[in-house]
């Protein structure tokens, strides 16, 4: 805790705010997939930039934690850097880019490729927590739908997709059903990541602007919505990583020249870097890269 800025309480939030968030987290764990309302505070970063995740991280963090932040899978994207610095300053916690070494991981839009274990907490930043919001704009109405387990609207939407496009046209923030009860928004992760949500780590979801917290205890049953004749397909680019050669990781497509030349690289920078350090090479990796 030596590095902590003494002008702020540990992890920025005052204790009463943390208690309020902590109570919401416990109820979220007790009712997996249900969105618990909480009195989100104004944080020193804008709404929509991870204020929900930051508040949840602040509420679960202990001084001994090793904290990792990723945005789009990468540790060095600007907003990930900014959030990591915030907690270095206000909580004095150690930070890491290594997935396996981290005890708390805050993420925007990805689940790390490396399997998470017990003793780890994955905190998601969530922009719109309500999976039904784009089908029904009214909060009063969507709350009723969850209460009555009335998810017909969602199935109609997915079915219309199939009728129009021949497939479900949702590629990220693909809705899931939790323990056979609540339909939940997994945050805008690519659907490739959906199957990873049945994991050993605790998963917490924070939506600051929308004032909602929800949670998945470890090993909770999480099923991506689909139809028997159109099963869920967690596809990704059919290509190995051009840097590390991984065939099982989610890839970003990068345009490399004016002629539209492109390459595919792992979105998870720690995963890719670790593989390269272990001698794995992709098609476009430099020969001398170490």
């Amino acid at each position: 805790m030596d590095g902590q800025d003494q002008a702020y309480n540990f992890a920025y939030l005052d204790e009463q705010t943390k208690r309020m968030i902590r109570r919401a987290i416990l109820k979220g764990l007790a009712v997996p997939g249900y969105q618990v309302p909480f009195a989100s505070r104004e944080m020193p970063m804008p709404y929509g930039w991870g204020t929900g995740g930051v508040q949840v991280s602040a509420a679960v963090m202990v001084p001994e934690d090793r904290f990792k932040v990723i945005d789009q899978g990468a540790d060095d994207t600007t907003n990930a850097v900014s959030i990591r610095k915030f907690f270095e300053k206000t909580a004095g916690v150690a930070v890491t880019e290594r997935t396996g070494e981290a005890t708390v991981i805050q993420t925007r839009h990805r689940i790390p490729e490396e399997e998470l274990g017990e003793g780890q907490v994955l905190v998601y930043q969530v922009p719109i927590p309500e999976p039904l919001r784009f089908l029904e704009p009214s909060e009063v109405e969507t709350r009723k739908m969850h209460a009555l387990e009335e998810y017909g609207l969602m199935h109609v939407k997915l079915y219309e997709d199939i009728a129009r496009h021949g497939a479900i046209s949702t590629a990220y923030a693909y809705p899931v059903k939790v323990e056979g009860r609540y339909v939940m928004d997994p945050s805008p992760i690519p659907k490739f990541d959906n199957p990873k949500m049945e994991m050993a780590a605790v998963q917490l979801f924070g939506a600051g602007r929308e004032q909602r917290i929800y949670a998945l205890p470890p090993y909770t049953k999480v099923v991506s919505l689909d139809f028997e004749d159109h099963p869920f397909d967690p596809s990704k680019a059919d290509h190995p990583c051009d840097l590390c050669g991984a065939e099982d990781s989610y890839l970003d497509e990068v345009i490399v020249d004016d002629a539209g030349g492109r390459m595919f690289v792992c979105s998870d920078t720690d995963y890719c870097g670790t593989r390269q350090a272990n001698g794995h090479r992709g098609a476009l990796a430099a020969e001398d890269a170490a």
């Binding site: 540990f10 943390k18 509420a59 202990v62 205890p217 470890p218």
Partner: peptide, 19 residues
């Protein structure tokens, strides 16, 4: 030490409720 003691206690309580 309120912030630190309550952070440790909550983390343990959360692990209990989650598992």
């Amino acid at each position: 030490d309120v912030p630190v003691h309550s952070a440790h206690a909550f983390r343990a309580a959360m692990e209990c409720m989650a598992r």
